[in-house]
Design a protein around this nucleic acid. Structure first.
Lengths: 232, 232
DNA sequence: CGGAACATTGACCCATGTCAAGTGTCGTGG
DNA sequence: CCACGACACTTGACATGGGTCAATGTTCCG
């Protein structure tokens, strides 16, 4: 399978670390040579309502994907990290905002080439379908979390998801940076920044983690943290 | 576009009433002749963890799609109504439960035939991809609702979504049955049954709707209801 | 050094959850 | 036809988790 992931792997590592079989269908090699674009922190990669032009692969940095209500309330649907692909969807208008949370580099591939790949390689469309299915599963997991879990459970699952992502990438599962602000985390988990902050403080008090800096997390007891995250 | 919709069209009618072009790729005609199955109320069409075997098109009735946490908290991700297709996703295990909320009839199509169609018709995989993209967009809309809106706003948007579905199907947008229980609605919107019930009562008091029976809704002022639903 | 942006902490409040009756409504069996 | 139980829904009283508002820290950068 070619397409690593559409956006953030919220909580289903199995669904998001695909088998990576076979040679490139031209998609990956096209991406490799696609134009590199630099996006500053807070700059939009694209916004809801934009005409869809490209799909992007994150090379470095991080992108927040979110929707907003008329009065400004915001729901972050996920964060995209290096290796993730964002921008897939219907080829009409963007239905979501994609904004860099830190300086980011992406490779841009015109969407028109997707249809082209699909006609050249009959299995490519099916691969896109599978990628979207994975993304949908991840979004549903997030919805289970924001819809049913307590603040503590939400924050714990969020940290565990980052930990798992690190483990998957061969990095230290007990230490990572938070590229996004408390506001981003709050809007992702459906909490206010104050609640996020207080929950971090509680976790510190429980000796489950340390915050060397406000955006650096050292997990001290992942097993216990998993218990705090509640079922699953 | 062949595939009408994967599950419930929560709040993006435009994304879910596709253009319905061209002749069947074999998919629709296969569905038309596929085996009919009767599912009793509360019976599972499939459950999380099941081996995927079929995709289903709802003929009559209604299906709830949901996930549960270990301790039983439940998040309904959507309701599937006649015409909707459920069961698309990765072809490994089901990642969601599908349970009838009332006696339901579905047509069953073995998933194996999906890959087959995809190889026979190069554009079929791409259509599946587009269908999943629509479903993802709908799920994100729901997440925006459950993550950010108040109880009143959630219930109002829920009712409006049903109203729109009726209008789309040429039925009375101001009157419909609620095939599901308050529990289902609550688990869909991330509220308790008591809150759902109280919110209905408030809407009655505001003269925005009547409940001839507890599962029959008559909307009296859709415009005003839309205001209650908040932005968007 | 100064200011802006972000994060933390505290005090208070309220929307929604929890718990507990009470009220239909429906289907079954006497 | 009625009595009964099961179930779903409604309503009320109360509790509380997390939101709101406000003040204070911290970090970073010009």
């Amino acid at each position: 399978m070619l397409i690593q992931s559409i956006a953030t792997s919220y909580s289903r590592p199995s669904a998001l670390s695909p088998t990576r079989t076979t040679a490139a269908t031209g998609f990956e090699s096209s991406l490799a040579h696609a134009q590199l674009r630099r996006v500053e922190a807070k700059e939009f990669l694209f916004a809801e309502g934009d005409q869809v032009s490209c799909v992007y692969r994150i090379e470095t940095g991080a992108i927040a994907l979110y929707k907003v209500l008329a009065d400004g309330r915001r729901q972050v649907m996920g964060f995209a990290y290096p290796g993730d692909i964002v921008g897939l969807g219907l080829d009409e208008e963007c239905t979501i905002n994609a904004q860099a949370v830190k300086p980011t580099r992406v490779r841009c591939l015109p969407v028109s080439s997707l249809r082209e790949f699909a006609t050249r390689d009959p299995s490519f469309g099916f691969k896109l379908y599978e990628a979207m299915a994975r993304e949908l599963a991840a979004t549903r997991d997030l919805m289970l979390t924001t819809g049913q879990r307590s603040a503590m459970e939400r924050v714990a699952s969020f940290l565990l998801a980052l930990s798992r992502r690190n483990r998957r990438n061969g990095r230290d599962p007990a230490f990572f940076e938070l590229p996004m602000t408390r506001t981003d985390i709050g809007d992702f988990l459906g909490l206010t920044i104050e609640t996020v902050s207080r929950t971090f403080t509680k976790l510190k008090a429980m000796q489950l983690l340390k915050l060397p800096h406000s955006n650096e997390v050292k997990l001290l007891d992942i097993t216990e943290l998993a218990k705090m995250a509640g079922g699953e």
